[in-house]
């Protein structure tokens, strides 16, 4: 990260903290005040998946051999390397910063511009992705309301804001043609994910009685789990305490 970028990070971070103060609190439940808008977006996203992402993912997955797909996805995630290191530093996580910096250097050189992942396969430097949304969580910014974003899918106010910061502050953008390179590598890796997790995604989107509610639950619970580790058992629902109580009233409409 260049020094010129640092003030941007700090300014944006300060704003995020202020923005987070106005967000309502959450306690393991679902905070979804924009549900009707979100549901409309969900319907549109499902339509986009049905006519584009699902068939395109299938076509990409069948037509392009696995090693090529892996390489393109590797290259895309390698371009996130500098930004990942920057966020590790902002989180005060020096160990992950060193880990991800080494990973970036190894894969950018031995891994031929990130097309291969020798760091992960030979050096024990597995991917430890992070972004500005995680940084805000470390700083104590609450997740805010649940959002389903057009094309990007499930998110929260904090995570959506983090995503915007990730895109705007990616050091790759200061390279010549950096923006174009980042954009060009994004689509193959999206299609690869759609293909790889095809069955699980299909079952959530198309086999569920309420795919919106399922996707919301999956996103919020797995996100909180990733941010807090094994602590989610504390939020587990105890059916023996609550067998006759309507605990979910207000959580699920």
């Amino acid at each position: 990260m260049s020094n010129a970028k640092l003030p941007t990070f700090i300014a944006v971070g300060a704003f995020a903290v202020l923005a987070g103060c106005s967000a309502p609190s959450e306690s393991g439940g679902v905070n979804d005040p924009y549900e009707s808008v979100n549901r409309a977006t969900h319907a549109a996203n499902k339509g986009a998946d049905r006519i584009f992402f699902r068939p395109a993912g299938k076509a990409y997955g069948t037509a392009v051999p696995a090693p090529v797909r892996a390489s393109l996805s590797n290259a895309a995630s390698n371009l996130d390397g500098p930004r990942t290191v920057a966020n590790d530093i902002l989180q005060g996580n020096i160990e992950d910063a060193g880990h991800n910096l080494s990973r970036f250097l190894v894969n950018s050189t031995l891994g031929v511009f990130g097309l291969f992942d020798p760091a992960g396969s030979s050096f024990g430097l597995e991917a430890r992705p992070t972004g500005f949304a995680d940084t805000m969580a470390v700083w104590g910014v609450r997740e805010g309301a649940y959002l389903e974003l057009p094309l990007f899918g499930p998110s929260t106010e904090r995570d959506a804001f983090g995503k915007v910061v990730d895109v705007l502050t990616n050091p790759i953008n200061s390279w010549e043609d950096g923006t174009e390179i980042a954009a060009a590598t994004a689509l193959p890796s999206v299609l690869d994910s759609r293909y790889t997790y095809g069955e699980s995604l299909d079952s959530i989107l198309y086999d569920s009685a309420d795919s919106y509610a399922q996707l919301r639950l999956y996103y919020l619970e797995s996100r909180r789990f990733r941010l807090t580790g094994q602590g989610s058992a504390e939020n587990a629902y105890d059916p023996y305490e609550n067998l006759y109580e309507d605990v979910y009233e207000g959580i699920y409409e």
Partner: peptide
Amino acid sequence: FFDLLIEGISLLKSERAEIGAMLDR
């Protein structure tokens, strides 16, 4: 066992939402 969490996602909560939606339908 009365619940199973896969990467933090609760089977009990997920089925509570799903069965609730099926009943509404």
